[in-house]
Simulated assay, not measured.
Amino acid sequence: MSGHSKWHSIKHKKARVDAQRGRIFTKIIKEITVAARLGGGDPEANPRLRVAIAQAKAANMPAKNIDNAIRKGTGELPGVVYEDVTYEGYGPGGVAVFVEAVTDNKNRTVAEMRHLFSKYGGNLGENGSVAWIFERKGLIRVPREQYTEEDLLEIALECGAEDMQTTDEFYEIYTSFEDFHKVRNAFEEKNIAMESAELTMIPQNTIKIEGKTAEQMLKLLEVLDEHDDVQNVYSNFEMEDAEMERLVSKE
């Protein structure tokens, strides 16, 4: 498993803990608000909103919070106006880093991003500097205890998925950006319980790191992910599983 994928799995576990503390609610509410503002408040006609609502339900967010966030996005309730922004740069060892954020103050957020990149051995770049390295894909996680790998792979390919990988806890099914909603809907129709379903960014090439560089890189990813405005962080690092586990266990 690549370092990027391994980090994604670790971050996913961490998100479930954060949800219990309520921290993840803030990020999901921002995403729902922006999705509703840009595409309207009907999830059936707004795929981005539909995904955000699914994430909210997976985090056990109360229905009233979801409804209020939608109504703030559509202007039915007063609220802060959030905007989508992306930041691109390089971490320790020349690793590419792509950040998706939602902010009500672009000047503040870009200054804070520049500070974090610099503090942890990286540098913020221009728009377009690393985006070309990544490809947007759909990612669906299914708990392993439900199916054998062979059975689920057959179902996934039948539904239009591109690939499937196995982690300690989940099967990770990858789709093209265009087919993501079709595959997810097909899984729902087949009553396949999904742990999560989201759009993600997959690196087309990777950089292997270790030692101090690897430690700095994970710290940069962690502080970026914990920033209130940041929704997602993607990178193209490669790291031995043993090294990853060692560094994560030090925290």
Rank of each mutant, 00 (worst) to 15 (best):
L38Q: 05
K27Y: 04
M61N: 00
G125H: 03
N68G: 06
K190N: 14
V142H: 02
E226P: 04
R71H: 06
I207C: 00
D179Y: 12
D163C: 11
V130L: 03
L38W: 01
G122S: 05
G121D: 08
I192E: 02
G89P: 05
D225V: 06
E76G: 05
L221E: 06
A111F: 12
A15G: 12
W7Y: 10
Q216C: 08
L153T: 10
G128I: 04
E189L: 04
A193N: 13
I140Q: 00
E158W: 11
W132P: 07
K208S: 09
A58Y: 00
G41Q: 00
D151N: 09
V183K: 03
E150R: 07
N60S: 15
Q216A: 00
E240I: 09
D151S: 14
R37Y: 11
Q204F: 10
I53Y: 08
L139C: 01
T206L: 07
N46P: 04
E189R: 15
W7P: 00
N123G: 07
G160S: 09
W7K: 04
M217W: 03
K30L: 03
N105Y: 12
Q146D: 15
A186S: 06
N105R: 10
E83G: 14
A193Y: 06
E251H: 09
N236A: 13
R21N: 07
T26R: 15
H12Y: 15
Y87S: 01
F170I: 01
L38G: 03
T109C: 02
L218S: 01
E238T: 14
I202V: 15
E188K: 12
E251P: 02
E210I: 11
N205Y: 14
D225G: 01
A15W: 08
K190H: 08
